[in-house]
Amino acid sequence: MKIERLGQDKIRIFLTFDDLLERGIQKDDMWREIPKVHELFSEMMDQAYSELGFDVNGPLAVEVFALPAQGMVVIVTRGKMNGHVEEGQAVEDDDGEEELYEMEVTLEQSDNIMYLFRDFEDVISVARQLHSSRLTEDGRLYSYNGKYILTFESALVEQPQQNALIALLAEYGEATSVTYAMLEEYGKVIMPSGAVKQICTHFKP
């Protein structure tokens, strides 16, 4: 579980699938009214307070973004809610008082596998491996906050190959908590398509 502050009243929590499995939670459980999800939420808020001093006061808006290969991104915003609560859930704090938070579930529209690389040499290395193993010649390459992110549409890769693709990407890079929407807005496209093929063409060993 990785937590970072996005603003005074907003934090982002990255949950890997291992984080969920350790707690006996399936991906689809995240937007269900079950005790173990409440326990996970309480754990996240405790960790946010201890690591960032993010105090849970009043209503919270919670957005959950499912990423196909990496896990889930949970964005928590503290403050007054606008309008009515469609899926209001009551949570008791330590004093037994109930605090209301709104659970908004937002799923990524495009099914993208995304991995972050700190060094361009790692991007070249993984592209060569993907090319030589004939897994894919596709991919889109972004620069984001001084790092590089390779994205692939999982729908274009068959399941057995998808596992091999992710295993290779994980060797050189790391799963990222950046959502595709954030990448489109704040990242810069270096290669819009065929990134693996282009990298292998331009950077021959």
Rank of each mutant, 00 (worst) to 15 (best):
F120L: 05
Q159C: 06
G79Q: 07
K80I: 13
L169R: 01
Y115D: 01
V157I: 15
L168E: 04
R128H: 15
A175Q: 05
K188S: 12
R134D: 03
E137V: 11
V73P: 01
E86W: 10
N163I: 13
E184F: 04
T151P: 00
N163T: 11
T136Y: 01
M114Y: 02
E98A: 13
E97D: 14
G173C: 05
L116E: 02
M114D: 04
Q129C: 06
V85P: 03
Q161A: 10
E97I: 12
I149A: 02
Q109T: 15
Q109W: 09
E98S: 09
F117R: 00
Y148V: 04
L183A: 05
V76Q: 02
F65T: 05
Q129D: 10
H131E: 02
L116C: 04
Q159M: 09
L116N: 00
E104A: 13
Y142N: 02
N163R: 12
E99I: 14
M81H: 08
E153A: 14
N145I: 06
Q159R: 11
V105R: 15
A127D: 03
E174D: 14
R128P: 00
Q70A: 05
V64D: 04
G96R: 07
N145A: 12
I124M: 07
F117P: 00
V74L: 13
E99L: 14
G146Q: 09
D122I: 00
Q161H: 09
S154N: 06
T136D: 00
L150G: 01
K80R: 10
S143L: 07
Q89M: 11
V189D: 00
A181K: 15
A90L: 13
F65S: 03
E158K: 10
G187Q: 03
V126H: 00
E97V: 15
F120S: 06
N82Y: 13
P68S: 12
H84K: 13
Q70M: 04
A155S: 13
E174L: 09
A90N: 12
Q161G: 05
R134Q: 06
G187I: 04
R128N: 02
S132I: 09
N82Q: 14
Y186N: 14
Y186S: 13
A155E: 11
P160G: 13
T176P: 00
D111N: 14
G139N: 04
S154W: 03
V91S: 07
R140A: 06
M182Y: 06
L135W: 02
E99M: 15
G146K: 07
D119F: 09
Y186H: 07
M103S: 08
I75Q: 08
L168A: 04
N82K: 15
D95Q: 15
T176N: 05
L168D: 01
E185H: 07
